[in-house]
Structure formats: C-alpha cells, structure tokens
Design a protein around this nucleic acid. Structure first.
Length: 663
DNA sequence: GCATGATCACACTC
DNA sequence: CGAGTGTGATCATG
C-alpha cells in the first residue's frame, strides 16, 4: 500500500497523526560538529574491540569522496524533518531522556522524525578508530569486526526506521544495500585491495547474512555477481579470486570439500525467456584462467536459512583450487553451461562440512558423538538442549534444577506496579505506534526488528508483559519466548562445561536469559562466607567494560542523543544465583573478547515490574562456536595491583585482548 | 496454510 | 554510462 510513494514527501496513508507533526519541510540543516581534537584517543581506552567513531578528526583520505579541500569541506547537510519542539531540545543539546515527563505524559513529545538520506552528503569515516587509510586496504581481525559491526548496526537501525515508517517510505526496502553503500562510500571497509588467497581478519567458518557484508570486508567484492576476479596487466589476464556458490545453479556437492560450480550468464529455461549459452567472458573467463594458473580461489557457500524463508547464509569455506572445467548442456533445456570442479586445499579447518554434519545430527541420520543426554532441560525448553562430552570421562555437571526464568523470594520487593500497553489484542504492537505505552517507554523506538534482533544496546529495554493487551505473538516479547536456537552444553578442554549452538546466530539475536534464584547482596556474601563460590552468580553491580555496539547516528544524519547511550541503567541491582536453579546461561564461560553481551530487560508480571538479564549475540556466531560473555570485574578488584587476590581465576579465553584473569 | 513464483528496487564492475 | 549480474523483501498464486 505504501509502496510507490518514492521520494514523495506526502506521508503514507494511515499515519494521520504524523502528517500534522511532520508537515514536511526542511526546518534546519544539521551541520555535524567537527571534533576539536585532531588526535583520536588511543584504542586502549576502549578495550573491547569496538571503539567510538571520530569521524571528523582523524587522518584524511580523499580517495573515497574525491573532495580535495578536505580541511574545509563541509559535509552537505542532511535534512532532518522534525517538529519545532524537538528542535529546541536538540539545540540545547539535551533531549528528554532523563526527564520522565516526555514519553509518558505526552506522546507527541516522543522523538519523532522523518529521515531522508541524502546521497550527496559526505562524511569522512576514515578517521574511525581502527580504520585508518592502511586498514582500509589491508585489515586484520579487529578491523574486520569493527567494519562488520558498523555495517550491521546501521542496517538494524535502518530496518527499525523503515518498520516504524520514519523513513521516507519506498526509498529503500533494501536496508542491507543501503547500509553497505554507506559503509563503502564512507571508508568503513577493509581489505579493499583485491587479493588471491585468504583475506586478513576473515576466518574460515565465518558466516555472513548479506552479500554486502562480504563486500565491506573484502572477502568478495561483488555485490551480486558470483565470481570476483582481479585484473592482470593485460585485459585477458584476469584471475578469479573468490566465488559464491549460491545453490541457485544446483551445484551438487557430494563431498564437503568438493564443489561443482556453474559459470555465470546464459538463460536456462526460465519461462519463455530466450535460451542462450553462457559465454566465455567475464567471470567465466577468469575462472578458466584460474584453472590453468592453479591459483587459490576463496569459496563461499551460500545455503538456505532454514529459519527465514528466502534468505541465505553465506559460509566462508576457505581456499579451493580448480581441478577441472568443462561445458555441458543444461539439463532443463537451457543453453550451454560452464562447469568448474573445485577441490578444497588440504590442511584447512572445516566449515561447510560442519554444517552438513549438524544437518545429519538434526535429521537423526547420524548420532551426535559423545552425547550424554539428549535434553538437559527435560522438556522445559521447546528445543532440546543436548549434553555432550567428547574430551574426558566426566559424565555430567553438578546437579541443578533446570528452570527457564527467575525465581523471586516471596519477600522480594520490587519496582512500582506497572500497567501494560493497550494495543489491539489481536494485532500485537506495531513499530511506530506512539500510542503504545511500551514503545513510549522505549523512547519511541521499537527495540527489535525482524528475527527478533535487538537494534541497539540500551540502558534498559522495556518489553510487553502479561497485562499488555497485545497477544503473545507481539514482537516486543523477544526475551520471554525461550530458546530459539538448538543449544549444546559441552565439556571444554580447560574451562569446564561450556555452551554453544548448532544453529547460526545473527548479531543482535536473543540467545537466552540468565535464569536462577534472585538473591540480595547480604545473601550473596553469606553464601561466599559459607564456602560457596560465586561461580554461578550473575551480579549486575559488578563493573562491566563499556563497548560500542550501536550505530553511529552521524552516519544517518541523526544527532547523538542520550537515547543512544549504551550504559546500563538498572532500576535496582539484580543478583541471580544459578547454582541450584538455572538454565543454559549458567554454562556460558567468560571471555575478554566475547561473542555475547547482556542487556537488562524490564517487563511486568503479576502487576510488578521485573528486571531480567537477557543475552544477545554481539556478532554473527557460526554453529559450534563457544558462546561467551564478559563476566566483568568485582567492584573491590578495581584497585590496581589486586591481581594476586584470592579467588581470581586464570582466563583461558585465548583472545589477543585477554586481561589474563577474572574473578 | 505453506511452498513457489513474480515483482520490485536496487549496487557494483567493466 | 549502460549492460551485465542476481539479491532479498514482499506480495500473489497454486
């Protein structure tokens, strides 16, 4: 219905209220503020691998924008359409975040803006910490992570804006392409130099959910084409460097280490379209030359995402060599096709074959080796949690009762009684509906997008609860719906039991909450005094290192507000003991460069607001990769020189940024 | 109701 | 710059 509006500034039908507020005309050009400090702080200040952006202060690089007089080059401003009221707030530099008045008492004061993305405005992001001009062309793991997180955070935010109808509709349905475009044009990319062989910072087994993600990290710089090639000195001396096997061409793969790849082009029987042969040019020619030169070709396997119809997951499967090539007639009446047989170069980790193995476990075709229990949760979770030990003879973790959520002591007194939203009981809450009190509590933003993916880290996420009128299928109940991935509790080599997933996990996807018994500080110290460890305790009063996960507002022409804060804001401390009662979360180990983070979530039960700790994926997590989060440090440990303190455990996370130990 | 097909709006390379 | 190359979301159809 809304489609086809294009850049028309008339608001889409159905958003009656907005048309008033959004009497669309550019009120003011928002000119980004230039950093006073030309030196970006050292990354040491932001130890978690993802540092703040300093878009205007860093080294200049004119190659992306072509602007010569960079020093004075004002970015062409973006138009922001907003009501005058909010304009005042912005001019003063404080929005209403800390003021209770706005959202609750007056819905119209909730931040509401239509954003129009302007292709022409130029922001130089090469000053981004971690992505200097050199890293743009040759990366490493840290830079790859920064680039991927920047891409996905942008994509999530764009998706959120589209969902809420806050973006001029019809401008793009493809938030993936838009986010990629922004990254590439702002220098948020790495390994831009094409190369034969592996790409620094990209590991075999890494997964991608969009073609654009592979573009921005230089794994495969074709946004659509399946074959990427590097040009030689002569026109005819191109070499294929990477291919994406999309499954579209029915590439049969008996063995996980062999790939029969079909060349590009030609028409094969798609309806009445002309049948035509594939031509030996472009990618096909490059592959042909590669088969003669025997150079390594990166192979990315595309497979259907079983959890989301139509979309694909791309797995980097390592380096292959072309062993054979030939032409054959299309079986379904099309023209001639080129075929290439590729063999994986030996001695590399397996990636795609792991997926095939998991498929066999799932189908029951093959038994999981080392399986101790098919379902640790005894049916408490809708998806079974397997218990596996492939490393020693320990038969099971110490006894505990599986329970998926929190148990509160009777005396536990909590926050104010809350009242749910009164959204349509059948329809669930709709992003962009500012009458929804739950959305108001989230400062006007719907916290989740498709696949239940969290858009931003927030001081506190407000979900709908039982007294909300919307029904359980409401998208604002992500953390209450139990496990979404098939989990496995497994014995690690040196860290006791650990947790991992058979399914791929998207960045921002909900994994599980920290279940257990809620206790208070006094009870915790009592437990420790009694000789109990705090091994299974989650304590929100510990010190957690800050890190950046959210998108950079400037990239969308937005102003940074308190709304974008990533600091936790707990209404009260929460200590959870999972020693006797808990879920899979109690098995998650610590890492100094984790792939999971926690987020406080609030929703009411029995008319009282209850605080929960929910875990989300920090980045895309391939199947069978151990899930870890940062345990933080005890407040009393903060003084320097306390590393010899009793109770510290040596950290085995193995990351470059390892702090060596944790408490 | 679920799988498949058609349509649409894109980005990047050459 | 325009042709070549599909992708990914969404909606219609079987």
């Amino acid at each position: 219905m809304e489609k086809g509006l294009g850049q028309n500034s008339v608001p889409p039908p159905g958003s009656i209220d907005k048309s008033q507020i959004l009497d669309i005309k550019p009120i003011r050009c928002l000119i980004p503020v230039f950093s006073k400090n030309p030196q970006a702080p050292s990354s040491g200040q932001y130890p978690s691998g993802f540092s703040p952006f300093f878009p205007f202060g860093g080294p200049h690089d004119s190659s992306t924008t072509g602007v010569k007089a960079r020093g004075r080059a004002m970015p062409t401003p973006i138009w922001s359409f907003r009501s005058p009221v909010e304009e005042d707030e912005d001019l003063n530099g404080n929005d209403g975040y800390s003021h209770k008045r706005d959202a609750r008492s007056n819905p119209s004061r909730v931040k509401l803006q239509k954003i129009k993305l302007n292709h022409n405005f130029q922001v130089d992001m090469s000053g981004l910490v971690g992505i200097g001009p050199a890293q743009k062309y040759d990366g490493n793991q840290e830079v790859v992570n920064i680039v991927l997180m920047s891409f996905d955070s942008l994509r999530r935010r764009l998706c959120q804006l589209v969902d809420a109808n806050e973006l001029n509709m019809g401008m793009f349905k493809r938030t993936d392409l838009k986010a990629g475009n922004i990254c590439l044009s702002r220098g948020i990319r790495t390994n831009a130099t094409k190369r034969v062989g592996s790409v620094p910072g990209v590991e075999i087994g890494d997964i991608f959910f969009f073609r654009m993600e592979m573009c921005v990290v230089g794994l495969h710089s074709q946004s659509m084409g399946g074959i990427d090639a590097i040009k030689g000195d002569h026109e005819d001396e191109t070499l294929a460097v990477s291919i994406v096997s999309s499954g579209e061409y029915d590439n049969e793969d008996e063995d996980g280490d062999v790939l029969i790849y079909t060349g590009q082009g030609g028409n094969f029987n798609k309806k009445e379209k002309h049948v035509s042969d594939q031509k030996l040019h472009r990618g096909n020619l490059a592959l042909d030359r590669s088969s003669r030169q025997h150079n390594e070709v990166r192979v990315i396997r595309g497979i259907k995402d079983t959890t989301s119809l139509g979309s694909k997951i791309y797995i980097y499967d390592g380096l292959y060599k072309i062993q054979d090539s030939w032409a054959e007639k299309d079986k379904e009446g099309g023209g001639n096709l080129f075929k290439y047989k590729l063999i994986k170069v030996p001695g590399q980790h397996s990636a795609f074959s792991v997926w095939k193995l998991i498929q066999k476990w799932k189908s029951g075709f093959l038994a999981r080796s080392g399986l101790i229990l098919p379902d640790l949760s005894s049916g408490a979770e809708s998806i079974p949690v397997s218990l596996v030990n492939e490393v020693d003879n320990v038969k099971s973790p110490a006894f505990f009762t599986y329970f998926q959520s929190l148990r509160h002591p009777k005396s536990f007194s909590l926050t104010q009684p809350s009242h749910g939203c009164s959204c349509n009981a059948k329809k669930a809450c709709v992003p962009g509906d500012l009458d929804c009190s739950c959305i108001q509590r989230n400062k006007g933003d719907f916290p989740y997008i498709i696949h239940g993916v969290l858009v931003n880290r927030k001081p506190l996420v407000h979900e709908c609860g039982p007294t909300c009128k919307c029904f359980p299928n409401c998208k604002n109940r992500v953390s209450q719906s139990g496990l979404k991935h098939q989990m496995e509790v497994f014995k690690t080599k040196d860290k006791g039991w650990g947790l991992r997933s058979w399914d791929p996990i998207r960045a921002g996807a909900f994994i599980c909450e920290y279940a257990g018994e809620v206790i208070d500080k006094a009870r915790l110290s009592q437990l420790i005094k009694e000789g109990d460890t705090d091994e299974y305790v989650f304590d929100t009063t510990r010190v957690y290192e800050s890190f950046k996960w959210n998108y950079e507002p400037k990239l969308l022409g937005e102003v940074r507000t308190n709304k974008s804060s990533e600091d936790y804001a707990m209404p009260h401390p929460l200590i959870i003991n999972a020693k006797n009662v808990g879920n899979v979360a109690r098995f998650m180990n610590h890492s100094c460069s984790p792939n999971v983070f926690w987020q406080p979530v609030l929703y009411e039960e029995n008319n009282q607001s209850f605080l929960h700790v929910a875990f989300f994926a920090l980045r895309h997590i391939p199947p069978m990769q151990e899930l870890t989060y940062d345990y933080g440090t005890d407040r009393s440990d903060n003084a320097e020189g306390s590393s010899a303190r009793k109770g510290r455990k040596k950290c085995f996370c193995g990351s470059v940024k390892c702090r060596g130990s944790f408490t």
